[in-house]
Amino acid sequence: MLCLVAVGSLTKTASADPLYPTPDPDAFFTAPADLEARAPGDVVRTRKIDSGPYVGTTGWQIAFRSTNSAGHPIMAATTVLLPNGVRNPPLVSYQALINSLGSKCNPSRSMFNGELQDAVGAMLPVSRGWAISLPDYLGPTVAYGAAKLSGMVTLDSVRAVQRATELGLADSKVAIAGYSGGGMASAWAGALQPTYAPELKLAAVVAGGIPADLEQMALSLGFEPHPGFGLAFAAAMGLEREYPERLPISAQLNEAGRWFREFTHDECRRFLLFHGAFRSAEQLAASKSLMDSPEARAVLRENSLRYFDGVPTAPMYMWQGVYDTLTFFEPVKEVADHYCRAGVPLTFAPYEIAEHMTTAVAGFPDAWNYVEARFRGDPVTTHC
């Protein structure tokens, strides 16, 4: 869900500029001066880490060069867990639930500070003897909602993991997986791979609960108080961070909106949901002319899989709740139909479920079995 206001001809002030997260103080995440000279996916630095609660694993972090939505180089990072005692494991790039605005919410931090909501689910690949990489796919500004960005960072994270010689995964089979915001990143990675990273060979892409039409989600939110408004507001702030010239949302906030922006700009999913519950765009915006801006709608469409012409070439598994009121079924079904007409080897699994996270629990067992079948080299079938 997104809360967007019209872009007016307002004079920019300091309070109208995007409010970025507090930079991570760890120098490991700092971009080098020569970042622009490096290619997407090039390793900047690596380090071995204490894998903490993830028993039976060896942990690594990799900083690498990626690309933002404007085509500029950015620094990104991923955290890798290798299963102890397993030689040449296949690799799963797991795009975890971030849905946040602070750097402390990225998997490189949230895996160890209690903020990662799907930490248990993320360990399921390791229990099957697979290596797992959890990228900070929202980039250095934690641009929540920037779907195209998340797809590129995901692909570059796979490149970086394969190029990091210390890990020994250069020849591993690779799958990409995620749900909800992580499903959006995974699905975009699959769709972008043929053009952005054509040299990558993906054994599978699995994605569920995909926010496939951000424009529709924004329009559906309306002006009334909503239980999920905190995430909607965060997505608007995240998109402004990624598109500051095209989407100057802060210029349209009233005093309460500017306070809420400051209050939440470094925070994670649970904080955003709790403190944003039953707030509304009408309370925080200086104008009711939401979604009147053609430029705002253009940004939303550019980050909506429904309107992206590119199609995956890797085998793909998608699942979606038919009655999901958070990420709508219709645009995902439209994407699936588009892929099927284009000849994508797709399995699409609708679930007669309304609650968003219940669909994740219901769908992941079959999704992981699909990945395992691809790692075994079983024949790929299509079920549209």
Results as ranks from 00 to 15, higher is better:
Val126Gln: 00
Phe263Leu: 06
Ala189Lys: 00
Ala314Val: 05
Cys340Gly: 06
His356Val: 14
Val371Pro: 01
Ala236Asn: 04
Arg65Thr: 09
Gly114Leu: 10
Ser220Thr: 13
Leu10Ala: 11
Val161Glu: 08
Phe229Ile: 03
Val371Ile: 15
Thr13Met: 02
Ala218Asp: 06
Ala177Glu: 09
Ser186Asn: 04
Gly363Ile: 08
Asp17Cys: 02
Ser103Asn: 12
Gln320His: 07
Lys288Phe: 11
Arg163Gln: 10
Glu224Trp: 13
Ala6Ser: 14
Thr382Pro: 06
Asp292Asn: 09
Ser66Ile: 11
Pro248Val: 06
Ala147Cys: 13
Phe223Asn: 08
Gly59Gln: 07
Phe274Met: 15
Leu219Tyr: 08
Val7Phe: 03
Ala96Lys: 06
Phe223Arg: 07
Phe28Pro: 15
Arg306Ile: 15
Trp259Ile: 09
Ser293Lys: 04
Ser293Gln: 12
Ala70Met: 07
Met184Lys: 05
Gly183His: 02
Arg258Asn: 11
Arg306Ala: 12
Phe278Asp: 13
Thr381Gly: 06
Glu334Thr: 09
Lys104Gly: 09
Ser172Thr: 07
Thr313Ala: 10
Glu267Tyr: 10
Leu231Pro: 00
His275Asp: 10
Asn106Arg: 08
Gly363Met: 09
Ser15Glu: 12
Ser150Gly: 15
Thr154Ala: 12
Ala16Tyr: 04
Asp171Trp: 07
Glu262Phe: 13
Gly114Lys: 13
Asn369Trp: 11
Gly190Cys: 00
Val361Ser: 14
Ala143Ile: 01
Trp319Tyr: 15
